[in-house]
Amino acid sequence: MNIESAFAERPVFVTGADGFVGSHLTERLVDIGANVHVFVRATSSGELRNIRHLRDEVTVHRGDLRDKHSVSNALSALSEYSDSIVFHLAAQAHVGESWDRPYETIDTNVTGTLNLLQSIVDLDLDIAKFDTAGTSEEYGNVDSQVADKHDYHEEGQVILNERSPVNPKSIYATSKLAADFLTMNFYDAYGVPGVTTRMFNNYGPRQNPRYITGTIITQALERDIVELGNLQPKRDMCYVTDGVRGHMYVALDGNPGEEYVYGYGENISMREWTETILEVGTEEGYWNDPEIVQADDRYRPGDSDVEELLVGYEKLHEETGWEPEVEWRDGIRATIEWYAKNKPSWYGRVDWQ
């Protein structure tokens, strides 16, 4: 697939463009010559934290997903086009914070998605694809009542793919599942060409330091201990540029009304992930073997933690040729380097001070 020619001069609309994955997607789209419109939350300062360097190369629309008027006003910019693509990445995307901010999580992730879809219908926009970014958290833990509906690796691991039952275990996961279903509802009812993309555990430069990779790295850079919660869960860690490519491949060649999942294709326990990050950082001279400490107050509430996530991305690979390109240690090395060089971008946002 020739990504460059497919997106050259093509109108695209990105929600959450100033966020972690959104900023990398926006940067890539600008690099290959797309006509990029971005929707970012209006603030009193008007700051663009992660895409400030792209300010003169994108059309910025300010508003709030929860405000239907501002959403419709921004999307009206697509009225003159017939082949535009909408990438919907904006969300309250932190599992732990969804318990602290449940109403904001639902309002942003569910009502916000509804506002986008309804605005497309109300404005009668002729778009080529609407990509709703889902999450691997929607699968949760295996429910014994439907265990026979899952696919299993020969070693007994559950492989999560487009056919797997969902079992969301947090307010965040439930809100994202609702957004997925809304996308499909609007495809069935109005023909909005929606697809859903469930990414598995992205990491990389610019990620909020409250996520697992960022909190490990920022603590190791600043002190002799790394304080964490439950380290038993296993996650399928996918570097952000691979995640961005997944979005772009699905937006071009995914079938409307269908779901696509992707990730690295291997999983690792959070203890092993932590140890690998600390090992790479020590090798590169960023720190000297910090101690790993587990703290009760950093565990998820009750039985809400998801034990294991492992993706089977065969569908996306077979239909588009996508596969991950960045090895774990290479991705970790690039991520540590970014945090080390950009302390002002994250220092006031950590959860361990």
Rank of each mutant, 00 (worst) to 15 (best):
F186N: 09
G285N: 09
S119H: 00
T174E: 13
A133K: 07
G243C: 08
R333W: 02
D289G: 10
Y339V: 05
D83E: 08
D124S: 14
F130W: 07
S269F: 07
A178P: 00
N202A: 14
G134Q: 05
E154W: 10
P290Q: 03
K68L: 06
D143W: 00
I336L: 15
D18M: 03
L231I: 00
G19P: 09
N35F: 04
D330S: 10
R163T: 08
S175D: 10
Y203L: 10
G156I: 01
G257V: 04
W352N: 10
S269E: 02
P193I: 00
A133W: 04
N185G: 05
Y81F: 15
V60M: 07
T15G: 09
M270F: 09
R329T: 02
V166K: 11
R163W: 00
D351A: 01
R206V: 02
E291S: 12
L221I: 05
G214W: 06
A91T: 04
L310D: 01
R49W: 02
G191Y: 01
T183D: 09
D151W: 07
E308S: 15
T183H: 12
L54D: 08
L231P: 13
S170C: 08
A93G: 13
R55A: 02
P102E: 07
D64Y: 06
G96A: 14
A133Q: 12
R329E: 09
Y190T: 02
T276V: 10
D305T: 11
R300E: 11
E137R: 05
S119F: 00
D67M: 03
E307F: 06
V195H: 11
F181A: 14
V311F: 04
H247N: 12
T174M: 14
D83R: 09
R245I: 02
Q219I: 00
K149H: 14
E337H: 11
A147V: 11
Q118P: 00
T282R: 12
Q207T: 04
V326C: 10
S72P: 07
Y299Q: 13
G214K: 13
E227A: 14
S175F: 00
A334E: 12
E258D: 11
H317G: 15
M270P: 06
T241G: 03
Q219Y: 02
R41M: 06
D124A: 15
G46T: 04
H61R: 09
V192M: 09
E291R: 13
T197L: 14
V306A: 15
L78W: 05
P301C: 05
E222C: 07
T335S: 08
T197Q: 09
E319V: 03
E4C: 08
I106P: 12
I217M: 05
G321H: 04
